[in-house]
Design a protein around this nucleic acid. Sequence first.
DNA 1: GCCGTTTTCGGCCCGACTGTTTTCAGTCG
Length: 581
Amino acid sequence: MPEHAVHNADIARVFGEIADLLEIEQANPFRIRAYRNAARIVEGLQLDLAARLAGGGELPKLPGIGADLGAKIHEVAASGTCALLEKLRRELPAGIADLLHVPGLGPKRVQRLYQELDVQTPEQLYRAARDGRLRALAGFGEKSELKILRGVEAHLKRPGRYKLAVAAQYAEAYADYLRRIPGVGRVELAGSFRRMRETVGDLDMLITAAAADQVMQRFTAYPEVRQVLSRGDTRASVVLHAGIQVDLRVVAEACYGAALHYFTGSKAHNIAVRRLGQARGLKINEYGVYRGAARVAGDTEESVYAAVGLPYIPPELREDQGEIEAARAGTLPRLVELGDLRGDLHVHTRASDGHAGIREMAQAAAARGLSYLAITEHSRRLRLAHGLDPQALARQIDEIDRLNAELAGIRVLKGVEVDILADGTLDLPDSVLARLDVVVGAVHSDFQLSRERQTERILKAFDQPHLHILAHPTGRLIERREPYDVDMLRIIRKARACGRFLELNAHPERLDLLDTHCRMAKDEGVLVCVSSDAHSELDFEHLRYGIGQARRGWLEKADVLNARPLAALQRLLRRPPRTQP
DNA sequence: GCCGTTTTCGGCCCGACTGTTTTCAGTCG
């Protein structure tokens, strides 16, 4: 039996490791793909598979998961591993799969390194490359050896992924530089950046130009470039001083749509679309859609989708997580847009740990087209952030009343971001909370509680009469702190029963709810509040990323609490249907 | 290993770049 609960991510990890090991054994590539595909599907699934199976539930029919993989899901859910993985682990040395993730190494070379040099780990690989032992192998040479040496150094340092908002700074500066090249048409950021993933591993750029040569020259001459990895006629890759890799593709204007589609991905989405094309006798590549030698589409992305009988699919949905089926059925969501937001319900000021006053924050929100904002300082327990006690909060309430009397075009709501204590009670008395328009509750302590206790803590908080919104529901900090362990489905169902809401905190470090949870909330009928968590006037910019995440979670305007006009919002906040089991 | 508007077997997305192979394999996106 597994030592702890098996989550979908654990099942996905098992399938991923099987795929890696099968790859090194050079098994049937389509079999390998089936495992990778299954890992991706399971990881992105809202439903907790192990919990469902343990409760006697059926495994749902999932695309790409047939009888064999289904049986393996049962096996992993019950035991944490499966016989195939254990067999592969006996056949190959521990940790060899890690070598596959070294840039420049694929299955063939990993196998050769293992068989001929007994290289099993990145450290051993590093020593072999440094000592000049790689160049002796057939198929390797001096350049390969150097490349692998560099690759393994980078791998051991683990540069990791970049938060979307950080990547944006590099991406947009680079794109501006490229737009100034004479003869350049469009400069677009594609890849996971365009899909608004919370982190990106590298940046993908697409440029249209008649003369690719000059573009390539200028691309590699960008002052921020540290290293040119490759440079061909239409494609080039560089690494910036900041460490981030940027891939460029240059195509003719006529290929713009097909190339943008191809370069936006995801890979799984592209494969699915190409398969649809194939079924219609079409070939789809980055230059266009072809029937035989005749080019039938590709000027725009819309034309590519139309060629396979689909409406346009927004980039945020392109993960092969059901969007193709929804498009075919005509049930794609009309995704929420930044302009749909009417207000912001999580804002700090100088009174706790923010950097501006209420008036400045209100004016900055109004300048962004918002018509209301809630001031939500921390509560007293969070001393680090100068949390407010009841007296300080009462003074702020008076100040907001005075300000509302003179401000035009924006309404300031009285709120708080109150700590949810370890026992599920709140850090301020009901008598204080009752005076507020909006109460946001947050977990800022005792992250290590067991799944059961952490979940119970939040369920109990929902039973408190004045709580409206659960802030940053998983508590994770991207690439920095793991989420605390909770049963999100139970939390969402409780929110539904009690008439509460979940925040999607748009702070670039948080982006919490996750996209998969957004879909879960939508399916369960719980509204999500996209909040900036602004600490300064500039921070309303966060909303852009929050909306990106909401779109990745399939949310529509109607699914978003703060897309409601003020009056409708106030009705929802005033009468929370009280407590159920 | 999956799957069926050709198919329950025989297919499974498609092309660019590098290096060392002198005609293409390996890797990557």
